[in-house]
Amino acid sequence: MKKSSCLYLISLISLLISYYFLSLIVNNEVLLPTIRQLGNYFYQIEFNEFLKNVSHTLLKALSSYLISMILAFILAIIARYKKLYLFINPYISILKTIPTISIILIVIVWLGNELAIYLIPFLVIFPLLYETIFYQLKNVDVKLIAVTNVYRFSLKQKLKYLYFYPLLEGLMLSFKQTFGLCLKIIVMAEVLAQGEFGIGAKIQNERINIEMSGVFAWTIILIVIILVIDFVLDTVTKRVIKWKCYNEN
């Protein structure tokens, strides 16, 4: 086993041990359920129910993310024209600075629960993706532009070798950083919008029933999903962006 994996495992075990002793000290299952109670709750979750709620949250996250990315891409290209950049910029600044909780509450009141769950992650993720794409397009290496001019690259070659690869790199790294955030925002929106399905809806449901084992269990499920997605994205990124120097440790 690699040294880094070994340390990861030790850290995880120490977390479980700390949780175990903390739950013994608190000794109140409503505040902090024991590991046994959590285990029982996990055991009682039906596979279909699990699949339905997880897939609902994931699908909402993916669709919002995809729409954000497409729109961010289009606007980032448009914003290469200075006048349009100056026009778009205030909107992006407002979206970037407005507190997430305000966005959630305003959108829920304006659009209702169901639509809000899709729009909220879009409003949070879109400005981040817009900036990533905008700066990747803006910061194309001028030295490489000179190379493409000297060697008379066609427009297709210029788009591919000057823009596509750096953009792919930026988007892959950005996806890795922001998709987890998108999932967390979806769950928060599900909780506040009191939807029917989804991890957030389950957490809200268990909270109303004062079933803290359920709140903890669905939170742990979310953490595991984000960690798995992180791992998969890490592997995919290393395969796709082969030219990047990754730290092997």
């Binding site: 030295k143 490489l144 690869y165």
Partner: peptide, 9 residues
């Protein structure tokens, strides 16, 4: 060029 200017990717 003074620098290699190879495409890094």
């Amino acid at each position: 060029f003074q620098e290699d200017r190879l495409f890094p990717y």
